[in-house]
Design a protein around this nucleic acid. Structure first.
Lengths: 199, 199
DNA sequence: AATAATACTGAACGTTTATTCAGTATTCTA
DNA sequence: TAGAATACTGAATAAACGTTCAGTATTATT
């Protein structure tokens, strides 16, 4: 690899990293290209040289994150024996990896606020479906193993996705330790409930 | 009351109602004054005649909603005997009243994205605290009655607030019926968990 | 009816922002 | 070393948006 190509990759990564932080902190729309210019030191033109558009830059980040997160989980998954342990493991990865699915909120804003142009909507919808499938598979596994009660798998997956999304909102200003404890308690509640006797 | 005053109040209400719908649908930043102009037929100047600014218009809606929701709940609360029933009642009111805490998302966007000017931040923070206190009181009551297991009240309140917030996100495109079923299942899970035997 | 007060209009202003592009600097190739 | 390819710059463009304001229409007051 060239010195030039190497430099180029580093620059692209530097832009992507800075943009990721900003999108997470400020959301999609509130993050301007100018913001990224200020943080990276790159010029506007250079950002557009590496990414076709703001939309393209954002999608790049989402796809990258989604890919990395799944990959990392699948590498760890086999180390957990029970489905219950997996649930705690997922919660842990969510907190430790990126303190709350960081781009989910920005992605949601993006998905809901932007003009419905191009294939972007389709790609993001696929992402949500993938998340739900991910949880459905887990919950179904737990039911088959007898760890979970029989119930509506699809709805439980939505609830779990919603719970984790909500928790990420609530713990945006928390420390990692606080967030982890919150997530763990939430998983415990999701598993056992808060009622003193089950109905 | 004058014919003029009446007309003025109606206009103000018309603007507020339209703005509420738009903020809910599109979020805070993505809703432009121009959007409100188009929907209401009022002019830009008229909107600024009735509300000092976009910020002021939004805060007006948040405060109005918060007030109405609490009032309505307190009127109903005594009709529920157990704390568990109250939880289901709250979920029901959330769905039926305004299909998902509608302004919470926009308020959150507002709170996180906007420049930290004025007393706005303070007022919104107070709102979140009020929500948590609301849930804390409920959970504490459930524990005192023996309906709930003893646990960290503050954290459970955060989880409950997070759960409801997350559910509202997930059911934005659902019908009222679907949303209600989802919320009810979520409350059931919050109470009893999904595990086949509690740990 | 005349004047004042209130309700409303919409063009104009200033700012912000995504995007482009003509040109410059750096590195590679032959 | 000459010229091509690549990486980068930053001023310019154009569109969008919140806000203002001078003026008009409507209703109230005397």
């Amino acid at each position: 690899m060239n010195k030039k190509q190497l430099q180029s990759e580093l620059t692209k990564k530097r832009i992507a990293d800075a943009a990721r932080v900003l999108f997470i902190q400020k959301g999609y729309k509130a993050t301007s290209i100018e913001d990224i210019v200020e943080v990276t030191g790159s010029s506007k033109g250079n950002i557009y040289y590496h990414f076709k558009s703001k939309e393209g830059l954002f999608l790049y980040l989402v796809e990258e994150w989604d890919h990395d997160w799944e990959q990392k989980w699948f590498e760890k998954e086999s180390k957990y024996e029970t489905t219950i342990d997996k649930l705690y493991g997922i919660a842990e990865q969510m907190v430790l990896d990126d303190l709350n699915h960081p781009l989910t909120k920005a992605a949601d804003e993006f998905f809901n606020n932007e003009e419905k142009t191009s294939d972007v909507e389709e790609r993001l919808a696929e992402m949500v479906v993938r998340h739900l499938k991910f949880y459905e598979k887990l919950i179904r596994e737990g039911m088959e193993k007898g760890e979970f009660k029989q119930d509506n798998v699809e709805s439980l997956a939505v609830i779990l996705e919603g719970l984790f999304f909500g928790l990420s909102q609530m713990s945006r200003k928390s420390s990692m330790k606080e967030a982890l404890e919150l997530y763990q308690l939430a998983v415990k509640v999701f598993l056992s409930g808060i009622a003193s006797r089950s109905s």
